[in-house]
Amino acid sequence: MNIFRLAGDMTHLLSIVVLLLKIRTTKSCAGISLKTQELYVIVFITRYLDLFTRYVSFYNTAMKLVFIGTSVAIVWYMRLHKVVKQTYSRDEDTFKHYLLIPPCFILALLIPLEFTVTEILWSFSIYLEAVAILPQLLLLQRSSNIDNLTGSYVFLLGAYRALYIVNWVYRFFTETHKIRWIPWISGLVQTALYADFFYYYIKSWKNHEKLRLPA
């Protein structure tokens, strides 16, 4: 494992820690999109079906279980925790996220890695992850008051995707010299969706201003 990949995984993990920290310490999920979190549950469960069929390493298995477990926990807090659920920005979190699922599934059937159940679902999870942030970005645009932890969460999530691209470039030259269209193009799309957010996040950080996204 190279340093970019490790940094990407750690950034991803840190983003989840930040989100859980916000939820548990402030007892609030204001500004967090339940739609995006639900999509992540689907992404992780469909991607990590190979937990049952293939052992790669302790690190790999532990991370997969952490990603599945924390995404389910976050949705649990937002839907069922009696205090936290009352802080959910329900009226602003209106993206019809279920509409993203059929096109991603059809795309996975048309362009799977291999035509087997696990590889089709893996491809589906890659396509769905690429667009899963959209409800969250829309919610941020609609929020007049984005708190620091929410801003940091989305920034770390975007940084994780950017680091994965660097990891692929590094692996291409040092290991395989093989082209991997499905994750590369999906990963580029996913990272590009954060471009606008990154711009305003870094600008607000440099100017010591509160983060606001223009609608």
Binding site: M1, R5, D9, H12, D50, R54, V56, S57, N60, M63, K64, F67, L113, E114, W122, R171, T176, K178, I179, R180, W181, I182, P183
Partner: peptide
């Protein structure tokens, strides 16, 4: 002809 995925990636 997509290459098989590296199974070590998350």
């Amino acid at each position: 002809n997509e290459q098989p995925r590296p199974h070590d990636e998350l």
